[in-house]
Simulated assay, not measured.
Amino acid sequence: MHPVENEALPQAGHADIRIVAATPEAARAVAEVIRRCFAGTEQRSYPVPEGGTRLHLTVDTESAAGPVLSWLTTSRPLTRTGAHVDEV
């Protein structure tokens, strides 16, 4: 996995999402829920060395559905920000 600091940022108004799941079906199910809230690009999937699937997609956060858009505009960042322990 590449360190986060070496990854290019998505363009303004977009977010890159990576889903790691034990099966391709589980990853696709999560991606489907996300696509119901945001316009997005075609998903790309890759095998995980330990088994499972890593799915990548980019969503347009400026084209969010009504309830999601209102949540995004009123939400505040959590006080604990940064990577999880297992994230690079």
Rank of each mutant, 00 (worst) to 15 (best):
Ala64Pro: 00
Ala39Val: 09
Ala21Met: 04
His84Cys: 02
Ala31Asp: 06
Val85Ala: 15
Ala8Asp: 10
Arg54Thr: 08
Leu69Ser: 11
Pro67Arg: 11
Glu62Lys: 07
Ala64Gln: 03
Ser63Arg: 15
Ile34Asp: 02
Thr23Lys: 08
Arg76His: 13
Ala65Val: 13
Gly66Met: 08
Glu50Cys: 06
Phe38Ser: 07
Asp60Asn: 11
Leu57Trp: 05
Pro10Trp: 07
Asn6Ser: 14
Pro49Asp: 06
Leu9Met: 09
Tyr46Arg: 11
His84Thr: 10
Tyr46Ile: 13
Arg44Pro: 00
Glu32Trp: 00
Ala12Val: 15
Tyr46Glu: 15
Ala12Trp: 14
Ala83Met: 05
Ala64Val: 01
Ala22Asn: 03
Glu42Asp: 14
Val20Trp: 00
Ala64Ile: 02
Gly52Glu: 02
Gly82Met: 01
Thr58Leu: 00
Leu78Asn: 08
Val33Asn: 06
Thr61Tyr: 02
Phe38Met: 06
Ser63Val: 09
Ala64Phe: 01
Gly66Ala: 13
Gly66His: 06
Glu50Met: 12
Ala83Lys: 03
Asp16Cys: 10
Phe38Gln: 07
Thr53Ile: 03
Arg35Lys: 11
Glu7Thr: 15
Ser70Met: 09
Arg76Asp: 07
Glu50Tyr: 03
Pro24Thr: 07
His56Val: 11
Ile17Asn: 01
Leu9Asn: 05
Glu62Ser: 06
Thr53Leu: 03
Gly66Ile: 10
Gly51Arg: 06
His56Lys: 13
His14Ile: 01
His14Met: 11
Gly52Ala: 02
Gly52Thr: 00
Arg54His: 05
Val48Tyr: 06
Gly40Leu: 01
Ile17Leu: 11
Val68Lys: 03
Glu42Gln: 14
Arg35Cys: 04
Thr53Trp: 01
Ser70Gln: 09
Ala22Glu: 08
Gly82Ala: 03
Ala83Gly: 06
Leu69Gln: 10
Glu62Thr: 09
Ser45Glu: 08
Gln11Arg: 14
Leu72His: 05
Gly82Glu: 01
Arg54Ser: 13
Val30Asp: 04
Thr74Gln: 12
Ala26Trp: 01
Thr53Glu: 05
Cys37Met: 13
Thr73Met: 09
Ala12Phe: 15
Leu78Gln: 10
Gly51Ser: 01
Leu69Ala: 13
Thr53Phe: 01
Ala83Tyr: 00
His14Phe: 11
Gly51Ala: 04
Thr81Asn: 08
